[in-house]
């Protein structure tokens, strides 16, 4: 096994009333892209900011690149790149000026023009930040995290609120960085993003890791490659028990007033399900099928949707 880029044990962060992080263990390997997937308020940002040395944990140990924040802060800052969930870069600086400012804080790193190429902002280098689109701003923010040529990159919800094309452009940037053998820790509440970018994913809920593995492992863990979602109209809901007895059903879970069935083969289960509904005079308000995703993992584990 390769050396761990991030290691944390028993991480806890409590605010007055809230426990934002509740005993979290993580191990991120060097060279992998690791995802923290969870709904809003799960504690992702709090966790990441502790790992970035921007927030002090209430309890627990953190080791980043083999160093500790209380001893090696300056050396660590030289080697990590950070993009916060929310940063408004100065509106009236040009893209190039912003990147150069960030570059000046590091003793080594890349040329600004090289970084602007990496994030696809070469043509925009003379534009003021306020004139950039949301996606361009976000790429500039990531660019500012890349000027030091870091060994470890933290991205907190890098694509939240962006249009699909901007999201794909950012994914390309992240994949390009990873292709150089560097480590990425990113948070997201988009399961497609986690599936696309991450080698391994930790599903976070209420400050705890509730599942950990590669996206494929996690999807397989709910059993069944396909998911059937049904909703019932007239209150004549079918019992979990009878649904589980239908042919090919691996798992039954309820969320948002509907039922999800994880199944192996649609053509076995669907006719049986419809037959059962007809027999019970249950009216379906909804019927949909899809390939199982990380979203289904979350629903299965928590009974809630990722985005509510």
């Amino acid at each position: 096994m390769t050396q761990a880029a991030i290691l944390c044990r028993g991480l806890v962060k409590t605010y007055d009333e809230v426990t934002a992080v509740d005993g979290l263990d993580l191990e991120v390997r060097a060279g992998e892209c690791f995802g923290l997937l969870g709904p809003n308020g799960a504690g992702k940002t709090t966790t990441v900011e502790i790992l970035e040395g921007l927030n002090a944990p209430t309890a627990g140990q953190v080791e980043v690149l083999g160093m500790r924040w209380d001893r090696d802060e300056h050396a660590l800052r030289q080697r990590i790149g950070v993009s916060l969930q929310e940063t408004h870069l100065p509106d009236k600086l040009t893209v190039e000026e912003v990147a150069l400012l960030f570059r000046s804080f590091f003793s080594r790193g890349r040329d600004v023009s090289e970084v602007l190429d990496m994030v696809g902002l070469r043509e925009k280098k003379k534009s003021w930040v306020e004139k950039l689109s949301g996606g361009q701003k976000q790429r500039l923010a990531v660019g500012c995290a890349l000027v030091s040529d870091p060994d470890l990159l933290f991205l907190d919800e890098p694509t939240t609120g962006l249009d699909p094309q901007s999201r794909r452009q950012l994914w390309d940037v992240v994949q390009g960085f990873k292709a150089q053998g560097r480590t990425v820790l990113l948070t997201t509440h988009y399961m497609d993003e986690a599936e696309r970018l991450c080698d391994r994913v930790a599903v976070i809920d209420r400050g705890k890791v509730i599942a950990l593995g590669t996206p494929a492992e996690l999807v397989a863990s709910i059993g069944g490659q396909q998911v059937i979602e049904v909703g019932f109209e007239n209150g004549v809901a079918l019992e979990d028990g009878e649904l589980r007895n239908l042919p090919g059903v691996r798992r039954v879970s309820r969320a948002g007033g509907g039922v999800s069935l994880a199944v192996d083969r649609l053509h076995e289960t669907l006719p049986a399900l419809l037959g059962l509904a007809q027999e019970r005079r249950a009216q379906l308000s909804r019927l949909a099928t899809h390939h199982a995703t990380l979203e289904d993992v979350f629903v299965t584990l928590t009974g809630r949707q990722l985005r509510e």
Partner: peptide, 13 residues
Amino acid sequence: TRKLLKRLVATPM
């Protein structure tokens, strides 16, 4: 308020 200070102290500035 714009979290720019936080972003700056995340660098070795």
